[in-house]
Computed example of a mutant assay.
Amino acid sequence: MGKAGKALKQVLEQYEITQNQLAVAMGISRSNIHRWVYEVGDPAGDSIIEIRNALQQIDPNAAETFTQLY
Score class of each variant (00 low, 15 high):
D59P: 09
Q21N: 09
D59K: 00
K3P: 02
I17M: 05
L8T: 01
V37N: 06
Q56V: 01
N53G: 07
Q10N: 09
Y38L: 06
A25H: 11
L12G: 08
V40N: 12
Y15N: 10
Q56R: 14
S47R: 11
V24K: 15
A25M: 10
V37I: 12
G2K: 10
P43K: 03
V40P: 00
E16M: 09
A23S: 13
A54Q: 01
L12H: 13
I28N: 10
I17Y: 12
Q56N: 14
P60E: 15
A7G: 09
R30C: 07
Q19L: 04
N61V: 00
Y38D: 15
I48N: 04
A4D: 08
S29Q: 02
L22P: 12
A23C: 05
I49M: 04
A62Y: 05
E13Y: 04
S31C: 03
L55R: 01
Q21W: 04
R52M: 13
D46H: 14
K9V: 05
Q14R: 14
K6D: 14
T18Q: 07
A4N: 02
G27K: 00
N32C: 11
G5L: 01
A62N: 07
E13L: 11
A62M: 03
H34R: 08
L8A: 02
V24I: 15
E50R: 14
N32L: 14
E39I: 06
Q57M: 11
G5S: 13
I49P: 02
D42F: 09
E16T: 11
A62G: 08
P60V: 08
A7W: 03
E16L: 08
L8M: 10
Q56C: 07
Q21V: 00
I48L: 15
M26L: 08
S31L: 00
Q14N: 12
A23R: 01
Y38H: 15
I28W: 07
A44L: 12
A54P: 06
P43R: 01
N53C: 06
G5E: 09
A54C: 13
S31K: 08
R52E: 14
Q57A: 06
W36T: 04
T18F: 06
G27H: 06
R35W: 02
A54T: 00
K3D: 09
L8D: 00
V11K: 00
Y38C: 07
M26A: 06
E39W: 01
V40I: 15
I17P: 08
A44T: 10
A25V: 04
K6T: 11
A54I: 04
R30G: 08
R35P: 01
A7Q: 02
A23P: 12
Y38K: 10
W36A: 01
Q14S: 14
Q10T: 11
N20V: 10
Q21I: 03
E50Q: 14
S29C: 10
A7Y: 12
E39P: 03
E13M: 06
E39N: 12
D42L: 06
Q21M: 13
I33A: 03
E16I: 01
E16Y: 08
V40C: 08
